[in-house]
Design a protein around this nucleic acid. Sequence first.
DNA 1: ATTAGCTGCTAATGCGTATTAGCAGCATTG
DNA 2: CAATGCTGCTAATACGCATTAGCAGCTAAT
Lengths: 358, 358
Amino acid sequence: MAKGGRLTQRDIARIAGVSQATVSLVLNDAKAAAGRIPDETRERVQKAIRETGYVADPIARRMAKGLNRILGVFTYEPAFPSAQADFFAPFLFGIEETAQTLGYDLLLLTGAPANRGKRKIFDENNRLRLADGCVILGREFDRAELKRLVAGDYPFVAVGRRDPIGGPTGAPVPYVGADYVAATAEMVRRAKARGHTKLAYVGPSKGAESSVDRWEGFASEFADAETAPGGTELALHIPEVGGKALPMLEAIRASGATVVFFTEMADAVIVDAAARSQNLAVPGDLSIVVLGSHLRPMQSGTRFTTFSVPREEMARRATQMLCERIEAGSAGDQLVLPCEPVEGDTLGAIHPSDRLDT
Amino acid sequence: MAKGGRLTQRDIARIAGVSQATVSLVLNDAKAAAGRIPDETRERVQKAIRETGYVADPIARRMAKGLNRILGVFTYEPAFPSAQADFFAPFLFGIEETAQTLGYDLLLLTGAPANRGKRKIFDENNRLRLADGCVILGREFDRAELKRLVAGDYPFVAVGRRDPIGGPTGAPVPYVGADYVAATAEMVRRAKARGHTKLAYVGPSKGAESSVDRWEGFASEFADAETAPGGTELALHIPEVGGKALPMLEAIRASGATVVFFTEMADAVIVDAAARSQNLAVPGDLSIVVLGSHLRPMQSGTRFTTFSVPREEMARRATQMLCERIEAGSAGDQLVLPCEPVEGDTLGAIHPSDRLDT
DNA sequence: ATTAGCTGCTAATGCGTATTAGCAGCATTG
DNA sequence: CAATGCTGCTAATACGCATTAGCAGCTAAT
């Protein structure tokens, strides 16, 4: 072992009595210099490698060759700290699984932002390039950064649908998303099928793509209902999320809505609890639908009617797509996965007395 | 942007009308060439950087400088796939949190083993060196690899106590562990305090350090009890883990043990269920103690008497220790964290009828 | 006998950065 | 006026590897 402590190809070369280039050729083997290196020499080099336990420095390798079979994972919010854990974990599961299968390591870009403040991709210590490509997670993206990414030639795939850059006809963003539009519409249809006509909605109608999509799926079910007598009606819309339970519940009741759709599970949990504590039956007196959740139900005891966002599968597909971009240089495309409806216990038939009201 | 697509310091240099070296000096700023570069030039370079959005290639940086503020995380088992998730997640939380605080990114070494089989650190595509140092997780370590790591100069810290290499007086392994010995002994003392004298133990007495430690803590409580009349007695020891519920339960009952210690929560869960289904009261007829668990209780409904292994804290401390090794070149040491007892509902006073038996 | 072709290897170069030695040009000093 | 010191920069090199051009030495073909 040379002075630096670290073993290099030069050391192996000296031991085996060949040149550094030969060592490299033996290592990268077969393909390139097939037949060009006799077994005798090859064996001598491999012996030296075995005896010293030499392993090539991946950094130098990457430096020379360009790729290193590492996938970056960038999250706009810290992925682990407990609040976010349940949200991110399924994504990480899926990414890790696929990365492992495809023989990639994972680089979690967790680094603290250089200039205190928001996390940024194009930070001054941008480490992205360390990886061959990168999966991007997060509820809300920085559009400017996304634009730069799309314009650049660095392979990436977003998890979650993303609007094209620069309007509907703009440059598409490679992503794997969930079909919130269809899933939400289906929930509304189920509510209508049980006689509900006055609906409440708690959650934003604009902002992140996932919010817009849910709202779109929700709103789409009104158009064709207008014509029918006693058509479906939006009784209340609370765009703010994370409000207090009682005020929310009161507003809902006052609006005459018989079913309320929440974009946030947390809101549903507290309103559900508040309702029950006031001796309101769920779904007897008020039905509750949550627009998306993942498998591990929150510990609230209530099994909400909702649909499950296939987070793991999204992550798997995104990782696959990324690897294709890297390996085949493909452009990446847009993929939307269906969400499975979850029956749950909180969507019931409309209360008879409410039915008379109409 | 030059041909390759990727922007380099040479490009910036050309734009700003200086040499590549100057660009590097401006980037690494202040310290080295303080005063050596006039503001005018500095500004010109920075302007070029700003306008092009140049960011230094971290690979080349690492190549030249040696460090890149990346911590590796190596796990002998896949970290995410759901079975392991609950075990590894708290560690990852702690590592990520600390890494983020200290300004490191995380490299998850998930790569599939090159030669199908067990995961190995010294694989032929050893990627460890990509990171400045590495945290190693896993229940059971490969001693040969550990030995090599200790002998080498690559900074690492193990999570979980590890025996010194080559016997008690051998080279110590840097680690952050949990004090299973003390925590287990405390559990036994609590059982004794409630009158239990015939104990059963389900779990290995050798193998991984964590197993040995638990057994040692357990066994240590017998020595001083021998002298007393009606001293504590090991009524049954089932070294195999993951057995069938009924045979286990029967063996325990047959042995006359009034309390059983499990190393595996999973075993406790099924035996507990089996007991209850046979109308045996827990802890009325049989007390159950689980030797270690983490915070999120399993969904079995039963709150077992146990102690909590501070996994997150272990991970935090390990990460800190690793960073110290990297930055200060310190050797790393051995740290054992206490486990908090968890009262739970499954350790009760001995049954009167059993008391008479003695 | 000359050429051509093959084999087995090596020298040289590039990847993008950090770093060091040192070169001009100018000001100050002796 | 020469010697010295300082300022502002650059040339050169190292990092460890992959890769290419190409050199010797030999054999086979012309």
